[in-house]
Design a protein around this nucleic acid. Sequence first.
RNA 1: AGGCCCGUAGCUCAGUUGGUUAGAGCGCUUCCUUGACACGGAAGAGGUCGAUGGUUCGAGUCCAUUCGGGCCUACCA
Length: 1000
Amino acid sequence: MPHELPKAYDPGAIEEKWAQYWVEQKLFHLETPASAADVFTLLLPPPNVTGRLHMGHMLNQTEMDIIIRWHRMRGHKTLWVPGTDHAGIATQMMVERRLESEGKKRAEMGREAFVERVWEWRRHYGGAILGQMKRLGASVDWQREYFTMDDNLSRAVREAFVRLHEAGKIYRGAYIVNWCPRCVTAISDLEVVHEEVQGKLYEVHYPLAMASSSRAQADASQSAGSLGPSTASQGAGSPAPNATPSQGAGLPAPNATPSQGAGLPAPNAAPFKFEGALAPGTFITVATTRPETILGDVAIAVNPNDERYKSWIGKTVLVPLMGREVPIIADDWAKPEFGTGAVKVTPAHDPNDFAIGQRHDLPQLNIMDEHARLNENAVAYQGLDRYVARKRVLADLESQGLLGQVKDHLINVGKCDRCKTVVEPRLSTQWFLQVQGEIAQRAIDAVEQGHIRITPENYKTIYLNWMRGIYDWCISRQLWWGHRIPAWHCAACKEVNVAREAPAKCRKCGNADLAQDTDVLDTWFSSALLPFTCFGWPEKTKDLEVFYPTSLLITGFDILFFWVARMIMMGTWFMGGESSAGVSPAVAAGVPPAAPTPALSAPIDLSNAVPFKEVYIHALVRDKERQKMSKTKGNVLDPIEITERYGTDAVRFTLASMAAPGTDIAFNEERTEGYRAFANKIWNAARFIFMNVERARQAGVLELINSQLTIQDLAKDGRLEDVWIYSRLNSTALQINAALNEFRFDEAATRVYDFFWKDFCDWYLEAIKLRLEFEDQKPVNREAAASALFFMIYVFDNTLRLLAPFMPFIAEELWNALHKGSPFFKPISLSMFPTGDFKDIDLEIEEEMRVLQNLVADIRNLRVYLGAPPKQPLEIEIWVLDEWEQVIRNNESIIEKLANVQSINYIYEAEQLGPNTRQRPEFQVRVVYEKQIDVAAERERLTKELKKLETELANAQRNLANESFLTKAPASVVEGIRKREAELKVLIEKSRAALSELPA
RNA sequence: AGGCCCGUAGCUCAGUUGGUUAGAGCGCUUCCUUGACACGGAAGAGGUCGAUGGUUCGAGUCCAUUCGGGCCUACCA
C-alpha cells in the first residue's frame, strides 16, 4: 500500500499518463445494456470538426465530465457520446482559404474535387479538438465517436428530409431570405447578428408622373410584366427558379415571364434624368436608409388613413434615376408618424416590402446579384458594389435635386454570424422546413408538460417565447460541403423529385435527365437529428431503445435556439410518431407568423419522444475583466496552455467552483493558482498518510486495522476527533450529492475543498498526530495509533472518491498509490461515489468539536496577542461551564498539541482569571504569560467587542419584547434568540469585567 | 421597442423556501522554515449587501421606483 511520492505535486508528470490509460483501457466504453434501467446518457454537443478547444468548451466539458463521472461512480450504466460536426460554412471557408494559398479556386476545381479535398483535410487534421478532449480526460465513450457526415448519419439525414417532405413539412419557394454576399449563401434568421450603427435616413423626392390619376393598377401591373426577371435565383448553382411559393390561390407567380420589356433603357445607359421642376404638390417624398434600393422600387405605399396622402392613392410617380412609372398604393404598413409617412416598396430587397408586394400583386424586381453587386436591372449602375452604388445614387439624386433632407438615424444592420458581412435580404428560391404549427407546438408541449426540465428555470420562458414566435426554417445553403438535398430536378418537366436515392427517371414525365439539387442542408439540420441518429435511427436498434431519450443535455445559452430547440422539434416529431396531414406551407421569412395551430391528431405522449429529459444551460466564460473573449480583442485564453501551467485538475476545479448556475464566469488565473495549491495540499496529505502507514507497518501496527471492524463500529464509541471527522465526511458527501443533483457545481466543489483542507488537514490530521507518534519504531499507544490510521485512511479514501469527478487525475494517481495491489482494486473512476448517510451525522459531536476548536483558536489568539514565542509551551487557566468540563478534560491532549499548551488549570471562579482573557459562552480562558500588553489597544479591542455584543443584545431583547414577534415567528427562531440572549449577557458581563480590570 | 440577468470586503464570487452574529478564495498586515505541505501554518484588518420607498414581528433575500453594467429577442422604412 504505501508508496513514495515526490515531494511536490507536478501535474504534468501524472496527467498524460492517466489520460492515455483511460482511453487505452476503454474504461468509459459501455456495451449496449439489455434494458434502459439505470442508464444515464449524455450527448456531447459536437464541436466543429475545424474547431480548437476554447474556454467555453472546457467549461462545458468539465461540467459534463463531472456529472458523468458522478453517475458512473454511482453505479449507473453511463454513456457519454462524442463526435464532431461537419460545420458547413466554417469548414468550407477554411479549406477555401487553404486552396487560396495554393493559388487555387473552388470554382475552378469543381464540386466533386473540392468536396474530396475537404474530406482529405478532415482525414488529416479534422477533429483535433477530440485529441484535446482526450488530454483533458473527458470520460466519453471513444468507441462510439461519430462524424455528422458519416455514411450512416448521412443516410439518416436523407431519410429525415424525405419523411418531412412526405408529411408536407418541407416546401420550396422564392422568398426573401438572409443572404450573405461573401459566403454566397442563404443563412437562417439565427445566423444573423444584429448591430446598431449610426446611419442616415435619406429623404427622396419622387415626381408625380405626367399621366393622370386615371392610370391605375391595370397599367401598373402591365408594366410589371415588363420589368424583367424578378426572382432570379442566382445563387451558386441554384436550380432554375421555376417553383412558385405555394401561397394561397390567386397570386400570380412572381417569377414568371422573364422577358425584357420595351420601354426600359438599354443597359449601361446614363441614369434617367428628371427634367421637370419640383413644384409643391408635384412630388411625393419618401424616407429610406438604403437609397440604392430605389432602383428596384415598384411602388410607393402610404397609409390609407393618412389624410395627407389620401388624394394621391392611385396616382403614379416616376422612380428617380430609373424613370419607371410606379403606383402609389394604400397599405397599413406605412406608418404616418415615421419619416414622411410614405414608404418606397422594393419587394425583392426587403421582407416587409415583399409582403406588401404580395398583397398588391406587385412585381419583384431584383437588382442585385449573389455578391450584392447591382445587376442589369439596375441599368446604369450595373456591376457596382451595393455601397458604391449607394454613393453614386445619392450623388445623382442630389444633382437632379431629388434628394431631400438627410438625417442621422440609428439603424440595425444584420451581419453574417460567420464572416460579419452585412446581410442582404435577397429574394431567392430556397427550401424551408415548416416548423410553425405542429412541429413547434410539440416542442412547446414537451417543455410545458414537463417532459423536459430546463435549468436554470428562466431559460424555459426564453425558450417558450422564442418557440411561440418562430418562423419557418430556411434549411438550404448554397454550399458544397454538407448533406446535399435529396431532390432531383427534371430537365424536361421541371418536376422536383424528392427521394432517398437518386431516381432513374422523373416520376412525373419519365424523363431520365435529372439533376440533383445543388444546395446542401443547414448544418444544424443534421445536428438536430443527432439524439436519435447517433443511435442508429431510422433502424430500430437496441441502442435507440435503451439510450433514447438521453438523460441530460449540458450546453451554453448561445445554441439554445440553434440546436437545443431544434433537437426538441425533431425529436418530438420523429420519435413521437411523425404522422401528420399535409398542411399547406405557411409563411416564410419576412411575413408575420401565424399562431401555431394545435396538432391535428390526437394528443401525443411526448414523455419518451423528447431528445433529452433535462437541459442544463451553463454560463459564458469571460476574461477576468468580464469581457467576452474574442479573437479581435485578443483576450482569448487557451485552455490547453493554462492547463499546462497549472494542471488540468486545477483548471477544471476553477471552472467548477465558479460555475454557479446563471452567472457568467470571469475566469481569473489567480483562482487557478489557488486550486493548484489545493492539489498540492492533497498531494502532501497523501505523503503524510503514506509515511505513517509505512511507519505503522514497520511497527507492526498495520495488521491491527485489518480486523472485521467496520467504520460504524469504530465510530460508535470512538474518540471525539474520529467520530467528528466521520460525521463531517457524511454531511459533506450528502451536500455534494445534493449540489450535483441541482447542477450546483460551485457548491459541490466548495464542499470538497473545505472538507479536505479545513476539516481533514487542518484539524483531523493535526489532532491525530499525537496518536501517530512512534518512538524507536514503537507507537506510544498501539490501539490509538491503529484506530487513527484506520480513520485517516478511510476518510482519505472517501475524500478521493468525492474529489474524483472534479479532479480526476490527482484522484486517480493517489488512489492507485493507496490501493494498487490490493485484491479488489479497480480504478477510481469505477469505484463507488460516497453517498453519505444522515444517521452517521452526529451533531452533538460536531458541537463539541466546535467548542474545542474555539478554545484552541482563542488560546492561539492570546499567544500571538501576548507576543509569546510560538515554540514555547505555555500554561493556561480556564473557567468552563459545568456541562462542558468533561469534554475539555477528555480532550486535553488535543488542546495541548494544537495550541502548544503545557498544562491546563481549571479555575472555578471566573473573576480569578484576571485580565487578558478570551471568552465564549462555554468558557473563559487565559494564557499565563507575563508580558506588558498594549493597554490602549486592548481597551479599544474590548470596547469594540462590547459594543457589538450590546447592539446584538439590544436587538435580541427588542425582538423578545415584541408580542407579534413571539406569536408569529417560528418557535425554533424564538428559542434560538432566547438562548443567544443568555449567552450575550454572560459575554457582556465578562467583557465589562475584563475592561474594568485593565490598568488605567 | 419588448424581455431577461447582474450590482454583497481592495479584486473574483457564494449566500437555497425572508429568521439569531453576512461567508469563501485571492490580495493585504504581523508572526512561524515544528520531520505531509512556504503551492505551507498561525493570528488579524476589511462590508450600514448600488440608491430610495414599501410589505413584514423581522429584508442582502419579497414588491415598486431609480441609477449603473451586461445579455437576448424584434419587420419600423
